[in-house]
Design a protein around this nucleic acid. Sequence first.
DNA 1: TCGAGTGATAGTATTACCTCA
DNA 2: CCTGAGGTAATACTATCACTC
Length: 294
Amino acid sequence: MGLDDDACNTGLVLGLGFSSTLETPTKKPSCLKFEQQQPPTTAAAPPPSSFEPLLTLGLCGDQFYQVTQKVDGNKGGYLNHHHHDQEKEQEQEPTAGDLYRRQASPHSAVSSFSSGRVKRERELSSEEVEVEKNSSRVSDEDEDGVNARKKLRLTKEQSAFLEESFKQHSTLNPKQKQALAKQLNLTPRQVEVWFQNRRARTKLKQTEVDCEFLKKCCETLTDENRRLQKELQELKALKMAAQPFYMQMPAATLTMCPSCERIGGVADGNSKTPFSMASKPHFYNPFSNPSAAC
DNA sequence: TCGAGTGATAGTATTACCTCA
DNA sequence: CCTGAGGTAATACTATCACTC
């Protein structure tokens, strides 16, 4: 493409691209409709080179949504009632190490126990494991011992409550998780999984939205680029038409005296031409004839 | 029957704490 | 006492499975 030449001759430069908005959420395009919530303790940082529109979804409060109304999670019939004497355990003060982690780690919040059931059961307190086994409608094994993973469906109330909580905080610390679980008659693990999936799917949706947005940006900029290229060509044509004959000649055939700044060469080099090109050094070729014009 | 939505699981990365030589 | 290495725990993310509607 001739952009470089154009830039040399006209000072106009055309470009097309996006700037990374990493860590500059305020620079996001204003036309983005969705905004992805960045929790106070930001989740794992994206790769440094990634485009991060930093959109947020929902509200972001300073305080975790205080649950004031208990939602009966058993209305749907999928959830078994479970005992609430886990409360003591839930309200135990975290250890110093826990506190440190929750405050210092960017990943502080939802525990996922994601290394599988064996690990999970090692990590969970016995009470919590018991709750988990009882509270969900099904366990991994049914009465026949067959590994039939049946699926819990959250009730509307439970979903709405979780959504509301997610709007407040997209991640939960263990206490919040416990509280939510208790309010909703779910296991902490279920709350945790719900938040994990919610985050993942929010991100997925956001990626799709971003993709569409970037496509549109690309189209717009391409059109703009095309328009400016055309305009540039027109300006160049006008400029050429307005130039005297010798200025349209190849620069190699022209020389200009560096001292008197008069153009020499095939044209009339000693006359008082109005086209003395002061401050146009590219008309001067020091290797051809430095002072021939004089 | 199929596809979308979604709960659940497995694997992996990161970070911080703890222990020990 | 200090320090670095290795182990462990907590938590996040991603991919995928599997079930329900």
